[in-house]
Amino acid sequence: MTNQPPANTTADAAKGKPLLMARGLTKRFGGVVALNELDLDLNVGEILGLIGPNGSGKTTFFNVTTGIYAPNGGTIEFDGRDLTGFSPQQVYHAGIARTFQRSRLSLPLSIFDNIMIGNHMRLTQGLWFNLMNRRAFRQEYEKSFETARALVKIFDPPLADRLDEPVAGLPMIDRRRIEICRALISQPKLLLLDEPSAGMTHDETAQLMDDILHVRGETDGLTIVIVEHEMGVIERITNRCVVLNFGSKIAEGTFSEISEDTEVKQAYLGIE
């Protein structure tokens, strides 16, 4: 597998070119238009909030971006490359990592194992290396273990000493943390967070957002797109928001700007 060096600040950033550009992105499921000619720019280093009522196309945007669904039309450019029609594997290697709306950790596996799933591109995958060269494997394992421990420590120091425990026994907030660690371990350029607050209490959500901001401080201005229903979260951590309704962008701006927008109010409250 390719061992790309981490590149958080790219050459394009200096020129002010967006990290991700979607143009005319369209995804249809039968008669339902989940994404309708969506144009979206994402600047390097920003935290973008993606909001909108249920079924407005937020998660579909993530799924199309990460290659789970192929778009019916439009293009996605990421970091100067055309990502349109890439497989999930290629998108991951290009430097985009994500979390899922419903936590998709592998519950019987240990915390360490779950994080290592996200580290796939940095682990040597050859049969000979893994099965016969146990000494070299052990070195890689020990190095990876320290990396994982250091990453988890940023979120929750006590959890860093429990990496060999199965994920199944952890409370929701720890599972979310592990999921974010799994996405971050490969040092992506872009992190997609799909409703990180789902299934958590208000306090836990606040705590998780602290963690995310903290980690972002440590990772040299990682670019993040966050889908979220909790407006408090959006207001607190995003630089900019994009509002979707029926797969189209209906508003864009800072949180205070979009919360004054009449079309946004209509979309959420259904006012004629």
């Binding site: 597998m1 999930p88 594997q89 990592a97």
Partner: peptide, 16 residues
């Protein structure tokens, strides 16, 4: 294990 437990998630982390 990763592909047995969740193929979609595994794909999103580069697993062939």
């Amino acid at each position: 294990d990763a592909l047995r437990l969740d193929e979609t998630a595994a794909s999103c982390f580069g697993l062939n």
